[in-house]
């Protein structure tokens, strides 16, 4: 069940997109998201679609892999589409009780759906082409300026990467605890909501205790390995901009220019 979540998954490849600096990809995703809200006519969306298709092609990630991430938002998509379809005021085409279908509604719903889908594709493209490690490194570096306003960027990034390491371990552990309690006759499937919630206690308590024990052990181990926060820390794999990264930034400027220009067509 938990295995189906594809958001945040990495797809191993060695494409131009994979090799880009994570900061470039983070910034690029931002630019793309902004462009979706800046574009206000069909020409802007055509440019955005071409750009997205181009990046997908360059990334060499199979299309079905990218689309899989959309499953998670189907319901959200349906809700927002129907909301837009029936509540936008304008020229009425069809009416049933309080439900009114308008031209403007169809127009809005269409662009809303496209925006949402592109948003998900755009951001999953980033996670699919960037290892979790690079992503946290990129975030740490890109958001470094927040340190000045006392936001502990390094610590947050460290927490993220530790979480990435321990999520699979804790998932395995959950499975083991569930089996062990089932061996003691526990039943997680039958009964009403309340009973089912109650039946989770024998899983959650041991899981929580185990997580605390691990956290405690890990803190000691980090201490023993001279961890003392981000200050004075060096990197085995420091982020360095390469030539391709500069070109990417240039592409972003051109892309944004085209999107803005399209609005005047």
């Amino acid at each position: 069940m938990l295995k189906d979540i594809t958001i945040g998954q990495y797809y191993r490849e060695n494409s131009i997109i994979h090799r880009l600096d994570p900061r470039v990809k983070l910034f690029g995703t931002m630019v793309f998201l902004v462009s979706l809200f800046v574009a206000d006519n069909i020409f802007g969306y055509i440019i955005a679609t071409l750009a997205l298709l181009g990046v997908i092609k360059l990334s060499r990630v199979p299309f079905k892999f990218i689309v899989r991430g959309l499953k998670a938002i189907v319901i959200l998509l349906l809700i927002s589409v129907s909301f837009n379809l029936f509540t936008t005021p304008g020229t009425i085409i069809w009416k049933f009780g309080i439900l009114k279908l308008t031209y403007e509604g169809i127009y809005n719903a269409f662009f809303m759906a496209v925006r949402l889908i592109y948003l998900i594709i755009g951001s999953s493209l980033m996670t699919l082409t960037t290892t979790p490690n690079d992503l946290t490194d990129g975030l740490e570096k890109a958001l470094g300026f927040l340190n000045k306003i006392k936001i502990p960027v390094h610590e947050i990034a460290m927490m993220m990467s530790i979480a990435l390491r321990f999520i699979p371990i804790l998932m395995e552990e959950t499975d083991k605890i569930m089996k062990a309690q089932r061996a003691r006759g526990a039943d997680f499937e039958s009964g009403g909501v309340l009973r089912r919630a109650k039946s989770m206690v024998p899983i959650l308590v041991p899981l929580l205790i185990s997580a605390f024990r691990r956290a405690n052990d890990l803190a000691t181990a980090m201490d023993a390995r001279c961890y003392r926060g981000g200050e004075g820390r060096t990197k085995m794999k420091p982020l360095r901009y390469k030539k391709g990264d500069g070109i990417a930034y240039l592409v972003y400027v051109i892309y944004l220019g085209l999107i803005v220009g399209a609005n005047y067509l």
């Binding site: 089996k179 062990a180 309690q181 041991p206």
Partner: peptide, 8 residues
């Protein structure tokens, strides 16, 4: 009885 049963 699973491994490290005290963890349950």
């Amino acid at each position: 009885v699973f491994q490290y049963p005290e963890h349950q």
